[in-house]
Design a protein around this nucleic acid. Structure first.
Ligand code: FES
Ligand code: FES
Lengths: 146, 146
DNA sequence: TACATACCGGACAAATTTGTCCTTTAATTT
DNA sequence: AAATTAAAGGACAAATTTGTCCGGTATGTA
């Protein structure tokens, strides 16, 4: 569905959000450990999110990553996905035609559209803050214990 | 959404189906031209589908690819996707957790499940023959003209 | 039987994604 | 100011996906 980079990016953002909601800034090492992702790779993805201003970073001692209250409230899953994976999956043709359009639709077009639209809606409807709460309340997990 | 291989594979299968429904067997070159895909790569994917008995091939002069009436009637999109891409996208966690399960669900799990289920249902519900008819009737396209 | 055709299969190559390492830059603490 | 901390950034490496090439194999035709 999403790329590895995107999966790590979303999980990282949610974890940062969860901690930010409790007033804690978190470092890369902590993040990677808590979401079970490769540290250096996660760093790359976070850099990208910081450049897009979806996540905030602070250098130096006591530094780390955080989400501002505004970011918690307004940044959606969709913005993360677009920033990392681009819009292809959210707009592209299911069968890989260069354009998804009713002009020359692929044979799955009309069946596929509603599902893709729901996915778009789903991503648009959920903010990082909201998902972070869910984790905070123990209703969602960012890694699995065996 | 799907891999390139999967996109080519589905388009190829539908084209083969369309021609088979009209009693025509088609060669690789023809297929690649009609679905606008790299010839050699398409060959690889078709080999795979033939091994899985989702498509039939005949060697030698007048040979080529075809779908038996039974294949036209029974092979679903889902079988193609599973054969080429595996079941990950149809069962895996949206956020990349190793297991998608209600035991330790990711924070998107309950929102994501119905969409994934619909996608599964969609793929299961459409046979190659059905999609081929749509193309035959001019209601769907396997490549785009500009 | 010889030959031509078209898929099969393996090896190889290019491109992209995933992942690592190390130096630089910025900020805090002593 | 110096030392320490932690993210930023660039170069590089591994793995996977995408794509090509070519000799082998089966089949139909002359
Ligand atoms: S044209 Fe294929 S999904 Fe719209
Ligand atoms: S656990 Fe993430 S989708 Fe089910």
């Amino acid at each position: 569905m999403f790329s590895k980079a995107c999966e790590y990016g979303i999980r990282a953002a949610i974890y940062i959000g969860q901690q930010s909601a409790s007033g804690r800034r978190v470092g890369l090492k902590d993040i990677a450990a808590e979401i079970d992702s490769p540290e250096a790779f996660t760093a790359k993805i976070l850099q990208q999110l910081v450049r897009e201003q979806l996540v905030t970073s602070v250098k130096g001692p006591t530094g780390g990553f955080e989400l501002t209250p505004e970011q918690l409230r307004t940044v959606t899953l969709r913005q993360l996905v677009v920033a990392i994976d681009g819009g292809a999956m959210l707009q592209g043709c299911a069968l890989g035609l260069p354009q998804c359009s009713a002009k020359q639709p692929c044979p799955m077009h009309y069946q596929f559209l509603p599902i893709r639209d729901q996915l778009n809606e789903l991503l648009r409807a959920h903010t990082i803050g909201e998902l972070a709460s869910k984790v905070q309340e123990g209703l969602g997990f960012l890694k699995q214990f065996s």
